[in-house]
Design a protein around this nucleic acid. Structure first.
Ligand SMILES: NC(=O)c1ccc[n+]([C@@H]2O[C@H](COP(=O)([O-])OP(=O)(O)OC[C@H]3O[C@@H](n4cnc5c(N)ncnc54)[C@H](O)[C@@H]3O)[C@@H](O)[C@H]2O)c1
Ligand SMILES: NC(=O)c1ccc[n+]([C@@H]2O[C@H](COP(=O)([O-])OP(=O)(O)OC[C@H]3O[C@@H](n4cnc5c(N)ncnc54)[C@H](O)[C@@H]3O)[C@@H](O)[C@H]2O)c1
Lengths: 227, 227
DNA sequence: CATATTTTGTGATTTGTTTCACATCTTTTT
DNA sequence: AAAAAGATGTGAAACAAATCACAAAATATG
């Protein structure tokens, strides 16, 4: 029962990520407690929204006293299952795959790429920080490290095939950099990251902004962009 | 007059990108005409939505006859200003920058990275397909190629500073890979691409899916994920 | 050429999200 | 200790997005 599988990160979840990043920064600066409007200012949303978002995720603070940063972060960590480590596999060690494999922030956030895979025997021989295996060791590694989430960075043409194999071996979540919609069973989460689209949408909005004349229209446009 | 600047690609715009990719594929397969439900099937949305989206972007077809693929694509090209070329600059030729600079699909979609920049003199000397300049040639290149949109792939710590410089030289749109919110004048469009967040959100939804028991809850979850 | 069929395009309706407004709780001040 | 001030948390209201439903148009059929 395969179907086109894709999802959009809910805006409220996106904002939660924003708040968290902001909290981490404030904590480093020695701040201990924040108010909804503190977070609002720092993240460019409004304070009602901050509180509503918190309410959606069952996060509470102290009336009048705001929120204790440590408590907030702890709650968020448990919401995002960051108290445990998450093992990942990365398929495709081309340009994109190499860059991702070297990205240290994944580890900082408890997401460890335990191994990478490529069909190209040459790529397998290159030495890099992470092992590059051939595809026939996929099952072994996924089982050994109990991997549930994979990153696909193979060419468009191979993406579906690779995704199918991943799912056969028990993968339940995929971040897909190939610009294709994958057909997957409904219990697999697929997040498509399409960098061309991200760029094009900026170009689109820039053109729109340049065409706008009056202040009125500008405000309408900002609304449109969810400013 | 700087402020936190960010925007979210409207879902309707995201879907338009989806339709276009699908149309390109169908055209290659020799298909000439599509119906709203064709696109709906291929992209996993429903056909009412396809028509509503088209209506939002002033795209029309023939009653009973559906849409002619060539006409559709032409209209979309003009909506996205793809009839003209778009020159881009890329700042930061580290792991991410290198990968992006080699991504051929940008060019296929009329987006040309005309030059890249890095403060590291060593990076400037490496030979690559694209020139790697020092930052003091930024203005010259932006002016010469009438660049309006830039890609930031420098470390978090330098991103704001680099963005400020870009804006001083006339850049109006930024795709920012550094995990920081930029403070920008309101007439600059900033699209933050945060790959950690993309991954974490998948982990989040995978956990949610695994916890779900009944079919009922599954449906609720799908709704939540904008399946 | 009249009738049946199919598909678009869009108001009307439903569903979802954001903003508003204020009761409630907590801390500070007098 | 009472009053004032400041912040949260959450229904209600306003706004936005998605789905429904159907008239209107185009094509096919007999
Ligand atoms: N390079 C970028 O900046 C960039 C940006 C956005 C998206 N992408 C997308 O990411 C994907 C990879 O891009 P890239 O530039 O790294 O391409 P690439 O050609 O450099 O790398 C692809 C890698 O995948 C490997 N591969 C191919 N088929 C495979 C298979 N069946 N199983 C395992 N490995 C396989 C190849 O050996 C190669 O190493 C593409 O879909 C591309 O569209 C790339
Ligand atoms: N590598 C990844 O896969 C990845 C993924 C997502 C996001 N990012 C983000 O992208 C950015 C770059 O990541 P990276 O892995 O390529 O880092 P990197 O350290 O490999 O590269 C950064 C490059 O920027 C250059 N630089 C530093 N300061 C500069 C300045 N002021 N002006 C011009 N150039 C400057 C450095 O010389 C270096 O070449 C970071 O913000 C990172 O968080 C990277």
């Amino acid at each position: 029962m395969k179907q086109i599988t894709k999802y959009v990160i809910k805006n409220s979840l996106k904002r939660i990520f924003l708040y968290r990043a902001c909290l981490v920064r404030l904590k480093l600066m020695g701040v201990e407690r924040v108010y909804s409007y503190t977070l609002a200012n720092e993240t460019g949303v409004n304070s009602d929204q901050v509180r509503k978002d918190f309410s959606e995720f069952k996060i509470t603070g102290n009336k009048r006293g705001g929120y204790n940063i440590d408590e907030l972060l702890e709650k968020m960590e448990s919401i995002f299952h960051r108290n445990k480590d998450h093992n990942l596999v990365l398929i495709g060690m081309g340009n994109m795959g190499q860059a991702l494999s070297k990205y240290s922030r994944f580890v900082q956030r408890n997401m460890n790429i335990v191994a990478t895979f490529d069909i190209d025997p040459f790529k397998q021989k290159q030495r890099s920080d992470l092992p590059v295996y051939s595809m026939n060791r996929l099952k072994e590694i996924i089982d050994r490290f109990r991997v549930k989430v994979a990153i696909i960075a193979v060419p468009e043409i191979s993406a579906q095939e690779v995704a199918d194999e991943l799912v056969r071996h028990g993968i339940k979540g995929i971040v897909n950099f190939a610009p294709v919609l994958l057909k997957m069973p409904p219990d697999v989460v697929v997040n498509n990251v399409n960098l061309c689209d991200e760029l094009e949408s900026v170009i689109y909005y820039v053109h729109k902004l340049m065409k706008v004349d009056g202040i009125k229209n500008l405000e309408l446009l900002y609304r449109d962009m969810k400013y």
